[in-house]
């Protein structure tokens, strides 16, 4: 399993570099830096420099697994639309859809939540519960999100930055959105929304947190890997798509025949029950390594 963090908050080169290095150290495999639409053009110019700096990092400076094939995290850049009304969102999408591989929109306002869920050109509705007492979602929005393939994003940063009853409120919103996700099956992604070094957490810590509030292993796998990868893959093909479901294939590249249409990406298959029982009483240090070698290891530290 790989860990995709689709929402790191980009600022400038130095801060982004520190953030990316730290996230890479703690085992993230794909990092997407989000900028406002004003800063995006400037940021895309130093993307290659970021990748170069990251590739110079030694394996021993990270907490990744020793026996794994060591690869640095991939970096991409996207747009996060903040504080815009429906008209402004439409204009920004028209301008940047072909340039950016990832476009998300901050929710919170009911009109924004609705218009984003109805817009198939937006990838993600970010934090529909933002500054609300409820989750900002209902069955109508959930059905629209499924229809237009808009993912809903839950941010770990909201847990970090809120305390006591506000944190409880955010967790309650997470659970309500999870309930809708279980019923309507819209894509649900989990991100960290890290802004500084102090926001970065290791992959396994975040997995443990979401397990503790009631997410299953399947939902965590899908939220960190399956749905984000689907978004990345879909957007890399977007240029060739005429309409949804139809894409242009170059004549030289006509190997994509009917047999190969199945993606190699598969939705989560749960553990068999015996292996889950074994994990309950892991006797470290020997059994811990077995756990790491299991099909769905969430840790990168060993």
């Amino acid at each position: 399993m790989k860990f995709y963090d689709m929402n790191l908050r980009g600022q400038d080169f130095d801060k982004d570099l520190a953030l990316v290095l730290e996230a890479n150290r703690f085992g993230w495999d794909y990092l997407n830096l989000n900028y406002s639409h004003d800063d995006f053009d400037e940021a895309i110019q130093y993307k290659d420099d970021l990748i170069d700096e990251l590739s110079a990092v030694d394996f021993y400076q990270t907490y990744r697994k020793m026996n794994a094939n060591f690869e640095h995290a991939d970096i991409s850049m996207g747009i996060n639309i903040l504080n815009a009304n429906s008209n402004e969102i439409r204009k920004i999408i028209n301008k940047y859809r072909n340039k950016a591989k990832y476009i998300s929109c901050l929710g919170g306002d009911l009109k924004i939540n609705r218009s984003v869920c109805e817009n198939h050109r937006i990838d993600v509705l970010s934090r529909p519960y933002y500054k609300r007492r409820d989750s900002g979602m209902n069955h109508v929005l959930a059905k629209e999100a499924v229809k237009n393939n808009v993912a809903i994003e839950l941010c770990f940063r909201d847990i970090l930055n809120n305390h006591l009853r506000y944190r409880a409120n955010v967790i309650s919103s997470f659970k309500e959105i999870l309930m809708f996700h279980r019923k309507f099956k819209f894509p649900l992604i989990i991100t960290t929304d890290s802004k500084s070094l102090y926001d970065v957490r290791s992959t396994r810590d975040i997995v443990s947190f979401f397990k503790s509030i009631g997410f299953t292993e399947k939902e965590i796998y899908n939220g960190f890997y399956y749905y984000p990868k689907q978004i990345v893959d879909f957007n890399s093909e977007r240029d060739n798509m005429i309409i949804n479901g139809v894409k242009v294939i170059e004549s030289d590249d006509f190997t994509d025949t009917y047999d190969n249409l199945e993606s190699d990406l598969e939705e989560f298959e749960p553990f068999d029950e015996e292996s889950i029982d074994d994990l309950d009483d892991v006797d470290l240090d020997e059994d811990y390594e077995d756990y790491e070698d299991n099909e769905f290891d969430f840790g990168e530290e060993e």
């Binding site: 703690f26 907490y63 847990i159 970090l160 930055n161 500084s196 070094l197 102090y198 926001d199 970065v200 957490r201 290791s202 396994r204 810590d205 975040i206 443990s208 947190f209 530290e301």
Partner: peptide, 16 residues
Amino acid sequence: STLKRQNRNKIAINTI
């Protein structure tokens, strides 16, 4: 992992 501040000073704890 949910700790953010201690006595108004930033802190981050990760289990490695």
